[in-house]
């Protein structure tokens, strides 16, 4: 059974149809890259999979391990292993990152019927992950993303992903705003999470990221549809010739 199956999905936002019958199948162990011009609906797809309320699904379905994902609240999806690293992570003033991470992790564990992680065990785990990803421990004491640079926000997303160990990781432009070194560290973090039980969907505009996180499949999105799928060489092709060749296909 595929981990994620998006079938003929149509989605509206405020009377505009943004996804027009999109399909995508992701199996465990695979890494999929989604590329496509601005406004083609990449973030919309990731939001709908994660359960953002503003979107109206008018057709199609999304199955996760065979279960109807669209029936679940966002927190249920998270507990089942859906993780979205946001293109634009929000700031939460006054809430220490550490507190946020612990509350979230324990909420997920609880929903899965697992025991809560007590503070010492949690701290050990959080510091271990932070050190591995070159995230200064001090950053964990600050308010969630408050005053973080663009790159720090992205690193904080990867850190959460590594901490929660989800089975489906959707990374929406994790490379934007990262400098070369940070990109390498973040990509190493992502690669370390690659496993036969887990799948990744990596949304990016740049081939460069895919040199570090090498995908099994590349999909090109245009105007709310997947217009072409292929292997990792498709990304190189795009880099050379751009999206115009697909505009007509859409």
């Amino acid at each position: 059974m595929p981990l994620l199956e998006v079938k003929d999905l149509t989605v509206r936002v405020e009377d505009n149809e943004i996804l027009h019958g999109l399909s995508l199948t992701v199996n465990k162990g695979e890494v999929h890259a989604i590329m496509g011009p601005n406004g083609s609906g990449k973030s919309t797809l990731s939001h709908v999979i994660a359960g953002k309320p503003d979107y109206e699904v008018t057709g199609g379905e999304i199955l996760f391990n065979g279960e109807d994902l669209l029936e679940m609240d966002p927190d249920e999806r998270a507990a089942k292993g859906v993780f979205l690293a946001f293109q634009y992570p929000v700031e939460i003033p006054g809430v220490a990152t550490m507190t946020f991470l612990r509350t979230a992790l324990n909420a997920q564990r609880k929903a899965r019927g697992e025991s809560e992680l007590l503070t010492p065990a949690f701290l050990k785990k959080a510091y271990e992950v932070a050190d591995r990803l070159n995230v200064p421990r001090d950053m964990l004491k600050r308010g969630v993303n408050v005053g973080f640079s663009g790159g720090e926000k992205k690193r904080n997303e990867i850190l959460q992903m590594a901490l929660f160990e989800p089975s489906l990781c959707i990374l929406d432009e994790m490379d934007s705003g990262l400098d070369i070194d940070a990109l390498r560290v973040a990509a190493d973090g992502v690669n370390a999470l690659r496993s036969p039980d887990r799948a990744m969907v990596v949304i990016t505009h740049y081939q460069r990221l895919l040199n570090y996180v090498v995908p099994d499949f590349v999909h090109v999105m245009s105007k709310g549809r997947v217009v072409k799928s292929g292997g990792k060489e498709l990304a190189l092709e795009l880099e050379a010739s751009g999206y115009t060749q697909f505009e007509d296909a859409a």
């Binding site: 994660a50 359960g51 609240d73 927190d75 006054g94 929903a111």
Partner: peptide, 21 residues
């Protein structure tokens, strides 16, 4: 949405944001 995506219920999310405020 950010909080619920990370596993918090709506109510927990509001509680957390308010306590930060």
């Amino acid at each position: 949405f950010y909080c619920t995506q990370r596993g918090l219920s709506q109510e927990e999310a509001v509680g957390l944001v308010v306590n930060g405020f």
